[in-house]
Design a binder for these strands. Structure first.
Lengths: 193, 193
DNA sequence: TTTTTTACCATGCGACTGCATTGTAAAACC
DNA sequence: GGTTTTACAATGCAGTCGCATGGTAAAAAA
């Protein structure tokens, strides 16, 4: 065998190149050649690590989801003594594209979301990725002593959809992050008086 | 000149073929040849009516937005004596993909929305298209005697983003329309007691 | 040392792309 | 009735695409 190589790490390296291209030039600008160039390897290397282009895209989606989950995990670990309400607020605000990293994550997510409308396979992968986040929101909401008559599951879906919609608006430049923060705070104030 | 032809009508005919392809196979499956086949014309005809592919896509976006606005207009005309609150609810529910027509509109909108993340020109077109709808929501919300402390502009943005997010979830099969209706009703109940 | 396996790289191929070009039939205009 | 203009149709072209193929260098396994 040739020089020992961390297979998974090389794949993540390529996945990040994919995400960078998606965030800057869009999903349909992703070609095997451009990914290779962006990652600084030859095209043969890309083919070596991914059997097909679709495999590469699916892996990139899983990777960006994992990184997003890791970010949320780090955030939660950094505020161990926060109450569920503040934690919930923090998690929701982390979904917004405010810096380059989160902007990229949201752009990639939106691109795949659109593609999932006509691809059941991608839709299933998205459900896996976003399900955990929605469950976390529902859990935190339930722990936050919501106002009477509040259905935790439905309201978690609502908060999730709201944050996603706001993220899209910010991403294309129609709204400012500050507006989204105000809206989310107003919503939390109504849900958790 | 050859047989007199309604130029605008022919363009709309092609635009609808574009939207059908986007809704069933995705935005990147749109090629001039496929559009021609879907519309039942030759490829030369498509080139005759649109100088470039991008022009065709932009026109298709404007057309689907116009049709959406027309639908809302018809809905409003059909319930002339409804109160602003019921009207608001009706408009929001019209944004959800419940039948084939609305599903197509949402799929096309989502596809362009994702593309707008990396295309300022498309982002501007989207803003024009969605701005009127958001203003309508804000107007209806203001007329509905909202609860004290409610910022009509922010809450219109919130309702808009919420309906959009829910629409995406329904579109990819993650949620049922009934869930979205429940969530929107709960939100309206909180805003307009 | 020989063999095998891994990690690439370079190249080529057929399919497809948007777009330009050219041709043609028909109807409005002079 | 000839001319011009419009509405297509057919074809060609350069470029790009995903993917298959074949080769090479290196290191683990024998």
């Amino acid at each position: 065998m040739p020089k020992q190589v961390d297979h998974a790490e090389r794949r993540r390296h390529l996945a990040r190149a994919v995400c960078r291209i998606i965030a800057t030039r869009g999903l349909d600008a992703v070609s095997l050649r451009d990914v290779a160039a962006e990652a600084g390897v030859s095209m043969g290397a890309v083919q070596h690590y991914f059997k097909t282009k679709e495999d590469m895209l699916v892996f990139a989606l899983e990777d960006v989801n994992e990184r997003g989950a890791a970010r949320v995990g780090e955030y939660l670990a950094a505020i161990p003594d926060a109450g569920p309400r503040d934690t919930l607020r923090g998690v929701l605000l982390q979904m917004l594209p405010v810096d380059e990293e989160s902007r990229e994550a949201v752009a990639v997510g939106l691109a795949f979301w659109a593609k999932a409308a006509t691809s059941p396979r991608l839709a299933e992968h998205l459900r896996e990725g976003y399900g955990a986040l929605r469950d976390l929101i529902a859990l935190l909401l339930g722990q936050s002593k919501p106002a009477p008559g509040v259905d935790a599951a439905d309201e978690a879906d609502a908060l999730f959809a709201l944050a996603e919609g706001l993220s899209s608006h910010i991403l294309v430049g129609h709204r400012e992050p500050a507006t989204a923060v105000r809206i989310i705070d107003a919503q939390l104030a109504r849900l958790l008086p």
